[in-house]
Design a protein around this nucleic acid. Structure first.
Length: 417
RNA sequence: GUGGGUGUCGUCAAGCGGUUAAGACCCUGGGUUGUGGCUCCAGUACACGAGAGUUCGAAUCUCUCCACCCACCCCA
């Protein structure tokens, strides 16, 4: 037997309606805020992520699905923002007026060890706003996420916010961090030794227990913000208050991707166990420039669909599985079966969802099947009915049965649906 | 990268050194030669994760491997 690749999951018919429900809700929510959908490829040039996400990050260093083909290095997208940024530049979308507001629904790929709420192929809802350096954009992005999560019926997620500064104040912070770590430089793991000069902030999220110990008590970014960043952070908080979005400041949020600046936020839920973040995002003022586009600010988020669904389930949110069929037409005998096929065709043309037996089973089995798939009605067509021109229509829910002249059949069913 | 847990029919699940390896659900057919969900009866299935070892004898004990799950860490 060939089994599914590790870290991936089938979304089966019995669950797919749950995905459709949140997808529809997300689209509606994003569109309420004036966002339009964008779809970008799953593969991109590896360089896009190396430059966009940062080549000292864990994601780029060891989690990407990268392969060579025809002398080109391609990578399955590990997150959504870089591809949208690339498209924004390549299609000169900045010429169509700012701000540019996009939403997307996409699979993402990261080679990681499996766990509850963590897969190698996972799906994200995301939004990006390009062109505004004002905090009202950040506040709107956060509000949209909050609005959507709330609309999903989830009420126990908490919003954590932080500011991770800009290149200007980060210089100060880097120095402070390096000074803090320098006495123990020799104890750092090899990866972190190389990060020490290039990107010391990454040492803060190293997995090695040794490095973990060495970073205890390290200086916090929040204490080193420049005036501009500090004002911006106060502004975001003020706007969130105006919108009535509750939050708490969490100086521990670092974000695993290098492109983030200033505002960083996460929505976390206790229902997820250790993978507590359901939505994460922030501002990235230099990404577009870094990717070769015109200097353009940006802010957005990614929201894990699998995790969202896990929370909804843990919250006991009831979703009724829609029935997949309105009517089952059961024909008995060759003549009647031929008539049943024609009738089925007619009913489908009228927009009714009709199933006709393709297993050539007996009447009892057909009824059993109708029951299992949740058909609302069964129409029985046998020689008797054919002769009289009157069919038996059974309402499966209440076992009521009546005779309906064939001319009135479709109308009767449509009325009942 | 570091730990912990679990592997018996399609699914759930007994069994703990000697069994024809239970049972239930599902599925199929029948009781009603034309009526489901309830009930009764019957039927179907290459089930002991793989390989080695101990033993007269292994699903049961040992080892190795594999798969899945979970935690640390990080993220969506």
């Amino acid at each position: 037997m060939i089994s599914i690749p590790k870290g991936t999951k089938d979304i089966l018919p019995k669950d797919v309606y749950k995905w459709q429900n949140v997808e529809e809700l997300f689209r509606k929510t994003a569109e309420k805020y004036g966002f339009t959908e964008i779809r970008t490829p799953i593969i991109e040039h590896t360089e896009l992520f190396a430059r966009g996400i940062g080549d000292t990050t864990d994601v780029v260093q060891k989690e990407m699905y990268t392969f060579e083909i025809a002398g080109r290095s391609l990578t399955l997208k590990p997150e959504g923002t870089a591809g949208v940024g690339r498209s924004f530049i390549e299609n000169k979308l900045y010429a169509e007026g700012l701000p540019a507001k996009y939403y997307y629904i996409t699979p993402c790929y990261r080679y990681e060890k499996m766990q509850k709420g963590r897969q190698r192929e996972f799906h994200q809802f995301g939004i990006e706003v390009f062109g505004s350096d004002k905090m009202s954009a950040d506040a709107e992005v956060i509000l949209l996420a909050y609005d959507f999560i709330t609309a999903c019926g989830i009420d126990d997620v908490k919003l954590h916010i932080n500011s991770i500064g800009c290149p200007k104040c980060r210089g100060e912070y880097r120095k402070a961090l390096q000074d803090f770590l320098r006495p123990n430089y020799d104890l750092l793991c090899d990866t972190c030794k190389s990060r020490f000069e290039r990107n010391p902030m990454r040492i803060l999220d190293c997995k090695s227990p040794e490095c973990k110990k060495l970073t205890v008590g390290a200086p916090k970014m929040l204490d080193y913000l420049c005036e501009d960043c500090r004002n911006a952070f106060e502004e975001v908080k003020k706007l969130l208050d105006i919108y009535g979005v509750p939050y708490e400041v969490d100086p521990g949020i670092v974000r695993g991707l290098d492109y983030y600046t200033k505002t960083a936020f996460e929505f976390v839920s206790e229902k997820l166990g250790s993978q507590s973040t359901v939505c994460g995002g922030g501002r990235y003022d230099h990404l577009i420039e870094e990717l070769g586009g015109p200097a353009t600010c940006g802010v957005g988020f990614g929201l894990g669909i699998e995790r969202l669904l896990l929370i909804r389930e843990a919250s006991g949110i009831e979703e009724k599985q829609p029935s997949s069929c309105d009517v089952l037409v059961a024909g008995l005998g060759d003549t009647a079966k031929e008539y049943a096929m024609k009738l089925t065709k007619q009913m489908r043309a009228s927009g009714i969802r009709v199933i006709i037996d393709v297993m050539e089973r007996g009447l009892k089995a057909q009824f059993k099947y109708a029951d299992r798939i949740g058909a609302k009605y069964v129409v029985v067509i046998g020689d008797d009915e054919l002769a009289k021109g009157v069919f038996t229509l059974r309402d499966m829910a209440n076992s009521a049965q009546c005779e309906v002249p064939k001319e009135e059949l479709i109308e009767t069913i449509q009325k009942g649906l």
